[in-house]
Computed example of a mutant assay.
Amino acid sequence: MSKLAQHLALPALLAFCAAAQAGNLVVSVLDKDGKPVQDAVVVVTPASKGATPRNPLPMQATINQEKMQFIPAVTVVPVGAKLSFINNDPWDHHVRSSPAGMGQFSATNAGFELRLEGKPEGKPGKASEVTLDKAGVLGATLLGCFIHGSMRGYIYASESPWAAKTGSEGIATFEDLPEGAAQVKVWQADQLIDIAPQQVTVGAVLAKNVMQLTVVPRRRRS
């Protein structure tokens, strides 16, 4: 083989080797009664460091306040991401953050606070931005509104690039994970005490894992 042919073949060979060392993982999250859980956050931390997902977590995300709700209800981003908050209701809202889970009952960190004016009729809502680059942003953050106490939303800032929300079937799928050992943990808003992480082995055969909560999550308002 000529040097030119070897040079052209090298990228394909490297890509083949990378694919051969990658595996897929499907994680199913169930509630206490064995029913699928939507909007649970699944975080996978491979023992092999350095690999990154084909589709990384977004460094920017938008959270709307609309019809007295945070939309989406759960936002998953990496640490350092920039969040844009937009009020699409005609009345004013606040955005206040505090630790989620048991930490919300003993929080000493004030987090961040914003006040968003109501959306003028016929005009777009105004946006305010926050960057998750301060200490204490790792993991889950509870969002609320001082004016409307029933409003709840969540941000999950993941240190691992392998993180995803479960869909309506309670499933999160991860592709091209590094082969070998990995840790899987699950966060869900109504699970105040985290369930124990699980160890999995990722290989050529599709790996499947089931994580079951000890609670039945509250039904979300449609």
Rank of each mutant, 00 (worst) to 15 (best):
S150Q: 15
S150A: 14
S150R: 12
G153N: 09
Y154Q: 08
Y154M: 05
Y154V: 01
Y154W: 15
I155L: 14
Y156I: 00
Y156K: 10
Y156W: 04
A157R: 01
S158L: 02
S158I: 03
S158G: 07
E159F: 04
S160I: 01
S160T: 13
S160M: 00
S160P: 04
P161C: 09
P161L: 08
A163H: 01
A163T: 03
A163N: 08
K165A: 03
K165D: 01
T166G: 08
G167T: 05
S168W: 06
E169S: 15
G170S: 09
A172D: 11
A172P: 14
T173V: 15
F174G: 08
L177C: 07
P178S: 06
P178Y: 06
P178C: 01
P178V: 04
P178E: 05
E179G: 14
E179L: 00
E179D: 02
G180D: 00
A181T: 12
A181W: 03
A181L: 04
A181V: 10
A182E: 02
Q183G: 13
Q183D: 11
Q183E: 15
Q183W: 00
Q183F: 03
Q183M: 13
K185V: 01
K185G: 00
V186E: 04
V186Y: 08
D190I: 03
D190P: 00
Q191E: 15
Q191W: 10
L192R: 13
L192I: 13
L192W: 11
L192M: 15
D194N: 14
D194E: 14
D194L: 10
